[in-house]
Write a protein that binds this DNA or RNA. Structure first.
Length: 313
DNA sequence: GCGACAG
DNA sequence: ATCTTGTCGC
């Protein structure tokens, strides 16, 4: 059987398993847990995952504090007061909302599979397959976006049609990784992948292509996995320097600014020149497809919550 | 307070 | 990305 082209991860369950390793009488920090997952940049996501912990009794959220000893937030009816009470009940001293002598009670000896390190290695390996010298002129363009209700992602694909009215398709899937900068493709691609079978001959994503730490933004990842030419259109800049309308990343030109507010980079199977030509000739159409995908993904999410309300009544 | 690293 | 849908202040 052909193996999947990318790692199927469950960062939520890996993370909760880490939190359960913190022994009685010990404390750990958001950053320490992030490093155990394999990337300090996941620190905020660790805070997020604790806030949505599905098993508060079995997974001791209260044992996670800031690296400077501040106790930090606690999602509980009694709030931080309860977090402080639980930490003290474990025999740990707190003064002025700070853990006393954090080093002496800090646990950082995690047994971990460093999942984010594995994902980075995979991104680097996939980047070896990059092809960005192809001059292309796409015909039917598909634009993608995802909206979320908790950990359920609603993906939308809107495709140019010759009739004039674009075609929309929706997919729904539970996500297994929170948003962590530079790992977006592992969160969004699984929601969108089933749609690509019916896509046009060119894929456009709300996010980056090669304009990424490891040249593996969502658009590039999707282009490499699907084998279809692709492009990324981000609404904010995640790295790189802008000179006129050119974007340089680590000294290499990795994209351009469109209409003063969109950061466009190649996904896969398209040259920088072709991407520029395409935006010059069909930029408005592409932006409107992306906006349409954004709207329909949102609508799908809202429609689902209406259905849930009816189901519960 | 600053810097900030897509969604 | 999601949160809020009525009220304050210009």
């Amino acid at each position: 059987m052909l193996r999947s082209r990318f790692l199927n991860v469950d960062v939520f369950s890996d993370f909760y398993a880490l939190v359960r390793q913190v022994p009685d009488g010990k404390i750990t920090t958001y950053g320490t847990l992030a490093r155990a997952l394999g990337d300090i940049r996941a620190a905020r996501a660790c805070g997020y995952m604790l806030s949505v912990n599905p098993d508060p009794d079995g997974t001791p959220c209260y044992r996670v504090v800031h690296s400077d000893g501040r106790v930090g937030n606690y999602t509980h009816p009694l709030g931080n007061t309860e977090k402080v009470r639980r930490i003290r009940a474990d025999g740990i001293e707190i003064r002025d909302d700070r853990i006393c002598q954090l080093e002496s009670v800090l646990f950082d000896d995690f047994v971990t599979n460093s999942i984010l390190e594995k994902l980075r290695a995979e991104q680097l390996s996939l980047a070896g397959e990059l092809a960005i010298n192809e001059e292309i002129r796409p015909s039917r363009v598909s634009a993608f976006d995802v909206s979320y209700a908790g950990e359920v992602g609603y993906g939308s694909m809107v495709t140019t049609s010759s009739g004039g009215v674009p075609e929309t398709e929706i997919s729904t899937r539970e996500v297994k990784i929170p948003y962590i900068s530079s790992y977006l493709s592992y969160r969004e691609f699984p929601v969108l992948s089933s749609l690509i079978a019916n896509s046009g001959d060119f894929l456009v994503f709300d996010g980056n292509g090669i304009l990424h730490d490891r040249n593996m933004g969502l658009a590039t990842f999707a282009g490499i996995i699907s084998g279809k030419p692709s492009m990324g259109v981000a609404k904010s800049l995640s790295g790189g320097k802008i000179v006129d309308d050119h974007i340089y990343l680590r000294g290499v030109e990795a994209g351009f600014v469109y209409s003063g507010k969109y950061y466009v980079s190649q996904g896969n199977l398209i040259s920088l020149q072709s991407a520029r030509n395409l935006m010059k000739e069909r930029g408005e159409e592409i932006i409107s497809l992306l906006k349409s995908a954004h709207r329909s993904a949102n609508e799908a999410r809202l429609l689902k919550s209406v259905k849930d309300t009816h189901a519960n009544n």
